[in-house]
Amino acid sequence: MILNVIGWFLIYFGAVFLFLGALGIVRFPDVYNRLQAGTKCTTLGAFSAIIGVGILHPAWLAKTFIIALFILLTNPISSHALGRASYRSGVKLWEKSVVDKCKEFAECVEERNE
């Protein structure tokens, strides 16, 4: 019974976070902000929803944990690669952005000017 409640709570928590991430993708102004919403929120949301499924059915816990672990390992890398790729391919920052850390490193500027 208590497992049931925890499992459904985790699934709803994850579903709401997935929805909020998707909303952020539509609403945010530029690529880098959308990247924040689209990968951080969906990582947390997918992780908790999948673990919730595992808690509802304790026999499934091992495999759901593997899926969640895989998402936890790969999602930051793909977001990192996408952010770097958008910066390198010359996507401009939003005009109200206050800081551009990548400009402080010499190699990024070199690559971008070429």
């Binding site: 994850g14 990247l35 689209g38 990968t39 929803a49």
Partner: peptide, 17 residues
């Protein structure tokens, strides 16, 4: 294209869940 790719990447995560 970067915007589309970000959207598709999030969509794959949501679809996995």
């Amino acid at each position: 294209p970067a915007d589309r790719m970000v959207a598709v990447d999030s969509m794959t995560t949501i679809t996995t869940a």
